[in-house]
């Protein structure tokens, strides 16, 4: 015993604190001609433990912008809180909501300002552009961003993204002679693809499951509202019908 005692006294013990955790889950967004769909599962896990079966990763920022955050949940929640604060300041200064391309640039500067102690979060921003088109912006944790038609991120990104390449961009497919592929898909098709993507990811990835939240942002007077009305589990989040409108579709996913 004296040996171990002297050893523990002579050898200094170092303890490292790791400020980051990976909380699993997957997010996904697809842009249409006059709408945008932003979805995420609601499972939050740490290693093999499920912390909760309902922790939202998708947040309405304004009536025309929805943000999905994935990675380290604590950083994600804090980041959304800070973005919302900046958007409120913008409203007080300019008496209007910030346009989505400006929100995208804001998010870049907010992420890059933490270049050497980053928010450990992958962001996907979806919504309606000022010209009324559907938009999706995707970010890396330090603020590199790009506007695209579709993006998956998170634990099951590697499962979902190639499926989307095939079904949204029609990669490795050739159109029938004399025809061409559509540049934007109708809302009903997009919703089916989102649900299929998450049920597939749930089937094969342990960190995905429990619940699914699909946000739909419609441009002003979008005809896509027909058909969204009778989707199972849909509810509207906007109070006015004279601007962009935000809906959420909630579904169950397998819990095993």
């Amino acid at each position: 015993m004296p040996d171990t005692l002297s050893l523990s006294q002579s050898q200094p013990q170092q303890h490292a604190f790791n400020p980051y955790t990976e909380n699993g889950g997957t997010i996904l967004a697809i842009a249409g001609a006059d709408f945008s769909v932003i979805a995420g599962d609601t499972r939050q896990s740490e290693g093999y433990n499920i912390q909760t079966r309902y922790a939202p990763k998708v947040f309405r920022l304004t009536d025309k912008a929805v943000l999905a955050v994935n990675g380290f949940a604590a950083d994600g929640n804090m980041f959304v809180k800070k973005v919302r604060q900046r958007l409120e300041w913008y409203r007080h200064a300019h008496a209007k909501d910030m346009p989505i391309r400006a929100i995208a640039r804001l998010i870049q500067t907010m992420l890059y300002s933490r270049r050497f102690f980053p928010y450990y979060v992958y962001n996907i921003l979806g919504g309606i552009e000022e010209d009324g088109t559907g938009a999706v912006y995707s970010f890396d944790p330090v603020g590199s961003y790009e506007r695209e038609a579709c993006r998956a991120a998170g634990a099951a990104q590697s499962l979902v993204q190639p499926f989307l390449d095939n079904q949204i961009y029609f990669k490795n497919q050739t159109p029938a002679p004399g025809t061409s592929f559509p540049r934007h898909l109708p809302l009903s098709t997009v919703l089916s693809l989102v649900i299929d993507s998450f049920t597939s990811a749930t089937e094969r990835h342990i960190e995905v499951g429990d619940g699914l939240e699909i946000y739909v942002v419609l441009a002003k007077n979008s005809p896509s509202i027909q058909g969204l009305r009778d989707v199972r589990g849909v509810s509207e989040l906007t109070s006015t019908d004279d601007g962009e409108r935000v809906f959420v579709v909630r579904r169950e996913l397998k819990k095993d």
């Binding site: 590697s158 499962l159 993204q161 190639p162 499926f163 095939n166 299929d196 993507s197 597939s200 094969r204």
Partner: peptide, 11 residues
């Protein structure tokens, strides 16, 4: 394999 799982599960 992860990508194959994802696409195959969908198609």
């Amino acid at each position: 394999s992860a990508k194959l799982f994802g696409v195959a599960e969908g198609l």
